[in-house]
Amino acid sequence: MTRLTACAAALTALLAAPAVAEEVRNPLTDSAAWEDLRYDVVGDAALADGADLFTVDAPYRAHDAATVPIAITQTDPDTPINAATVVIDENPAPVAANFEFGAAMAPLDFELRVRVNQYSNVRVIAETPEGLAMGGRFVKASGGCSAPASRDPEVALASMGQMKLRQFDTPAMSTARREAQIMIRHPNYSGLQRDQITQLFIPAHFIDEMEVWQGDEKLFSMTGGISISENPVFRFSYADNGSTDLRVRATDTEGNVFERKLPKDAQG
C-alpha cells in the first residue's frame, strides 16, 4: 500500500467514524431507578433485547427537555408489536404512556414527544406474541416536567381540544401505506409547573386516554401520564383502508372529552 493510499484509507475511516459513533452514542445505561421500577412495570416477565425487533431514536442531548422526540421503528416486520410501554427512569411518574397498536400500524413506525426531568434512560418495552422486548436510549435533559408552559393558562385552556392532521404523502391507491401526524392542543400540565404570575403550582391536568381510528378500524390507543409533552404530537405510518378520515377521541383528567373527524386529505 502506498503512502497516498494509506492516507486516503485513514481519512475515509476518520470520516466514517462519527456516523458509527452517532449510531451508538446513547445506549441504555445501568440504572438503580430501573431496578426499583422493573417489577412494577413488567412484574416477573422476562425482557428480551429488542435490538433485533426495533430501534429507538432519541437525542443524546435534548434541545428542549419539555419536548423530547422519541421514535420507535420496527426492523423485524415478521414479529407483530401489539403494544408498547414508554418508561423514563428518572421522571417523577416514570411510565410516560402505554400504547396498543392495531394491525394497520405494522410494521411499527411511531414517534411521540415526552418530558425528561433529569438525565435518564428512556425505555420502550414492546409486547409481542413471543413476549416482551426492551430497547431505549440515554437522554441528557433536565427540568422537562417543571418547565413553564409555553402559553398563558387562559389561552391554553381556550384552545384545548383543537386538533390538526397532517398527511406527508398522497397514496396512489387506497391500500397504500401512509404517514401522518396528529397534534392535539392541550397544556398537559404535569403538576410540577408554577403559574408565572402567582408562583403557585398549577394542578396536574393532562390527556389520560386517547384513541385514533380510520373508519371502524382502530389504529392505536394510549393511556398517558404527565410525561407526555404539552400539545401532544404523534407521527406514525399506517396501511390506508380507504376510509376518508381519521377519528380521534381523547379524554383528560378533568373529564373533558375531545372528539374530531380529521379528513385524510387535510394539509398543514
Rank of each mutant, 00 (worst) to 15 (best):
P148L: 02
P148V: 05
P148T: 04
A149L: 15
A149Q: 14
A149D: 15
A149W: 11
S150E: 11
S150P: 07
R151Q: 13
R151I: 00
R151W: 10
D152Y: 01
D152I: 05
D152H: 09
D152W: 02
P153A: 06
V155D: 10
V155S: 12
A156V: 01
A156G: 07
A156D: 07
L157T: 14
L157E: 14
L157I: 15
A158Y: 04
S159I: 15
S159R: 15
S159C: 12
G161I: 03
G161K: 04
Q162H: 09
Q162W: 02
Q162S: 12
M163T: 08
M163R: 01
M163D: 09
M163G: 02
K164C: 00
K164E: 10
K164I: 04
L165M: 02
L165Q: 04
R166K: 11
Q167V: 05
Q167P: 03
Q167K: 09
Q167L: 13
Q167I: 01
Q167S: 15
Q167E: 12
F168G: 01
F168R: 00
F168W: 10
F168P: 02
D169L: 14
D169M: 15
D169H: 12
P171D: 07
A172G: 14
A172D: 14
M173S: 14
M173G: 00
M173F: 12
S174N: 08
S174F: 04
T175F: 09
T175D: 03
A176F: 07
A176Y: 06
A176M: 04
A176P: 03
R177S: 07
R177E: 04
R177M: 04
R177G: 01
R178H: 02
R178D: 08
E179V: 14
E179D: 12
A180V: 00
A180R: 04
A180Y: 01
Q181Y: 02
Q181D: 08
I182C: 05
I182N: 02
I182D: 07
I182V: 14
I182F: 06
